[in-house]
Structure formats: C-alpha cells, structure tokens
Design a protein around this nucleic acid. Structure first.
Lengths: 219, 219
DNA sequence: CGCGATATTGACAACGCTCAACTCACGTGG
DNA sequence: CCACGTGAGTTGAGCGTTGTCAATATCGCG
C-alpha cells in the first residue's frame, strides 16, 4: 500500500497515525459504528465479518500485513459495513478521519493508491459474485483455499500451510455453507491427500489437484 | 453523476464526448476487450453481463440514464470484466481513455464523484455477497425485484412496473438460479397477487408483501 | 481436571437443478 | 393473410447436493 511513497511522505504518514496492539479476538471496529477511522495492519491477521439479515454471518475477507481496511467507509462518511476482528495477536496503525483526509491532501499519491485498491477490490468482488451461486460447495471451498494459500501460504515440508488459525465455521461463512458440510468436504479432501487439516490449521498438500477442483465444470 | 457540476464543466464534459445511438441488443463493449473507453447512458437500459468459468452467465447490474459504466476498468488500465449490452434502444455518451483522464485533471470533481460511486458499488456488492448464498431462491428473487423496482419502477394502475423488458433468464442470471425455477417462483408470486408477470414484463402489485419475503428469515 | 470451543459423523428431508415435453406469443416471409 | 419458425415461458418427474437435526468425540485452556 505504501510501497513507492517517498521516504518523506512515509514518515509523515507513520507520524500521524497511532500504533496499537490487538490481542487475538479484539474487535477493531463494529458493523454499524460510524466510520471515523482508517486502519492498516502491520502484523498479524484481521477478519472482516458481516452480519446477515437471516442471523448468519459472512466472512468478506482476511486482512494481512500491509493492507488497509475500514478506509472506504470512512472516506465516504458511512457506517462500517462489517466487523473487523483480530484472529491472532496483531499490530495495526490507525488514523482519525480528519488526519486521513489531510494526509491525502498533502500526498495525493495516497489517494490514488487507495482508489486503485478499491477498484481492484470492486473487480474481485464482481468475479466472486458469479462463483458464489450455482457452484458446488466443494468447488467453492477449493477456490477459497487457493486464494487463502496465495495470500497467506507458508511453505512447509508437508506442503503449503495457511499461516493463521481458521475454523470450519470460518470457511463455511466464506463459502456460504455450513460447518457440517465443510467438515465433510474437508475430510474428503484430506482422505484424497489434497489437504491435511487439523484443528484450526489447514495444509494444502497438492495445489494442482486443488486448482483442478476449483475449475471443475469449466468448458 | 454530473449533477452539481458547474455549467462550464458540464459543457466541457459533454463537448469532449461522442453521443451515439444503441439499437436494442447492441454490445457496447465485450468482456476481455482492453478498457479504453468510459461510458454514460443518456437514455434506455444497458445490462452488464459476466461470463462464468462454468459456461453460465451472471447479470451484474442494469445501467439506467445518468449512470456511468466501464470507467473503473478503463481508469485502471484493465480489460473490461464483463459485456455491456443494450436491452432497449438507447443513447449513450462516451469518451476515450485519454479524454477521460484529461477531463478528470481539469475538473477534479469528476474524479471524486466517480471514486465515490465506485465506493458505493463496493459497499453494495459486499452486501450482496452475503445474500447470494444460503438464502432461498424465492428470497433472492424478491430482493432482486425490490431493487429493480426502486431503480426502474414506474407507477401504473396495476402497481409498480419495471420499465424495461426482462426475461426469466435474466432474472435467473441475477439470482444465480435457473429460468425454470424462476418461472415456477414467479408463477407462485403471481398466484398470490404479489406480482403480475407477462412475457418480458413484471409488475409488482404488492411491494409490502415482496419486502416481507425479502426479509424472510431475519431474526 | 473439567468445561467450552471445535470437530466428526449419521440419518433424513427438501430445495432446486436436470432432463424433457409442450404451449404460447410474435414477427417474418411466402 | 396465413403458415411457419423462433424465442420465451410453463409444467412435470426424478434425483442429487446440501441443509437440518441430533448425538458424540476431541482438543486446549483456565
């Protein structure tokens, strides 16, 4: 996000923000709260979770080090559309809305970058819209694991491990399914040697096979 | 989109673009084409349709008069992520990418507005992500009809009519279903007096009942 | 060591997709 | 003006995927 900024600008940005630690489980902001702050993660993982009308939840995305979150709502003067919750002990830097606006005025690059990032997310989401409907749960899970792998994968002797704890429930809320079905599906993948999953940990043993499953049904 | 611009700026914007008529069925741009143009609809309706990996299609949104389309891809130097197709005879104004950039430089308001519009779409899409999974087809259809009604509704003696032709297939592609299920569901809604649908036309007779269905399952 | 969070597994039902046949409206051309 | 073809819509039968309900197992933290 801040890569390529002049060191001068970078100093101003860091100086204007506040750094704070987030114990695992901490809620950074809550859905419905007025969006009066922008955030960037320095270390750890934060998940963005939206409560649905039917009482369920949807995990919209996981934030990794270097990513911004909460800024779109803040800059549009809207309430936060989702909760942000640290899933491991983390460190973030955050800014008040006036500070954020001022930084953008003084360093237009920041505004451009955040616009570009929002545009990218818009295109990504449009792509996901289609995937979420009509496809089988196994396909959606495969796709989700691939994305997590690329974003938060860590090579180990067993394969590529997703480097933060993720529950069956989380996966269900990302794929629009239930933890029961996810459990069954993962058990099947484990059995076939594609993945290895233990409590809150998932290792992808055979990325090729997973990619195969993710594109199932493509012509 | 352009409301609130100075008349001077407005003249510059209109002068720099080209106006053209779109016969019903015309494809304005195609998924995968380099995004080298920005568009705004003056009259009619255009639908944005994305081809999915499994061979199916997703209708992402319908564009009405005054709305911009194709601009996010263009400004990010990316290929268009979807097709744009006129569903009735329409009129649009469009700009080349260099022209668009220059207009934004000369009238920063335009850039701000399009960023705001993109942010709004981002929030909308996030909301839709949750809806699309787990909810029953009837619920998704009800929600979709409500949105169409608000956006393109025209009061008639029968109720609120969606003012452009829309097929069961379109509705299926918007809700991630099949035309068969949509046909059955709509027949059910018609029977209960909630809607009245004929070939390519839909009238909402009882918006309250529709809203009720859309929130089915809420706590 | 005990409890809560997490995960597994089975039985069952149902929603909605697939396949298939048929009807209806509309526009085109002979 | 009517025959015909095409696109749009309807309806039925069957079944698979997946959600629901329920019971049990296991891991870890306090």
């Amino acid at each position: 996000m801040f890569a390529g900024l002049s060191s001068e600008a970078l100093e101003a940005v860091v100086g204007a923000g506040s750094v704070r630690k987030l114990a695992s489980g901490t809620r950074v902001f809550a859905q419905g709260d007025p969006g009066v702050s922008g955030h960037s993660l320095l270390e750890g993982r934060v998940k963005i979770v939206q409560a649905r009308a039917d009482g369920g939840q949807s995990v919209l995305r996981f934030i990794g080090p270097g990513e911004m979150y909460g800024t779109v709502a803040a800059l549009m003067n809207q309430p936060f559309p989702a909760d942000a919750i640290a899933v491991v002990d983390s460190v973030e830097i955050w800014w008040t809305l006036p500070t954020l606006r001022q930084l953008m005025r003084q360093h237009p690059d920041i505004g451009l970058r955040s616009t570009a990032a929002a545009g990218q997310r818009l295109l990504d989401l449009q792509g996901r819209i289609g995937e979420l409907t009509g496809e089988r749960v196994e396909t959606r899970i495969a796709r989700t694991l691939l994305r997590l792998m690329e974003k938060a994968g860590r090579r180990t002797s067993e394969g590529v491990e997703i480097d933060f704890p993720i529950t069956r429930q989380d996966l269900a809320e990302m794929t629009g399914s239930t933890l029961h079905t996810v459990s069954r599906t993962l058990a099947g993948l484990d059995h076939r040697g594609v993945t290895g999953s233990t409590r809150r940990r998932i290792v992808v043993r055979d990325p090729r096979a997973l990619a195969q499953l993710a594109e199932q049904g493509a012509d």
